[in-house]
Amino acid sequence: MAAHDEKISQNRRKLFKALSAAPVVTTFSSGSALANASAHQCLANPPVASTPQYLEPLPAECSDSNPGANCMAYVERFYWDNDGLSGTHLQYWNNTVTDGRIVVLTDETTATLFTVNPDGSDPDPINTSWNYSVSGSNLIVPGQGGGATPVSLPGKTGYFLLEVVPNADLTGIQEAYAYPQATQDPLAQSCGTSLGVTATNGVHWVDG
């Protein structure tokens, strides 16, 4: 009985301490679970599943005269909120150029789960949480390739996607486009949005 009382007493102390902190729950999904996770299903089958979503306009180097194989895009997905970045959740998709456009997030049931670049170059997580910063309620996505202009995303809770394209002579990363992706509930990872195709200064906003 004494042990039980001690446990209660210990819990009480822990509870009062815990009540003073924010109830944070962040999640790091595992690959085996990912295939069935709602977020993955949402991304693999966007709300308008039969209509591919496109990134437009393409960067100049990704034209029909420049073979798709030389214009690969990479997509990362991160979770962030207005308090900063947390629970980073990374995923890549291997994209292709079709009819002058990069197809994103369609038919990705075989999405690669590791971070080796699809062109065979060495493993290369393009960026991670600590490379991003929060300024006021804006998320600052650093420009890629050392010198590109950072992209500022107005505060918005949810996920964002980052698409990166090699530059024309393939000697480095040239551009980063960020795609905020709102969710109804970031923790539950339910999807309630689709990628929009309206471009403003390199930032493609989200419908829904």
Partner: peptide, 18 residues
């Protein structure tokens, strides 16, 4: 823990083993 898991290529794939 969080950063090492993040820097693992197949953390998600290996599940509880990872």
């Amino acid at each position: 823990f969080r950063q090492l898991a993040f820097n693992s290529f197949n953390y998600r794939l290996l599940g509880d083993a990872a």
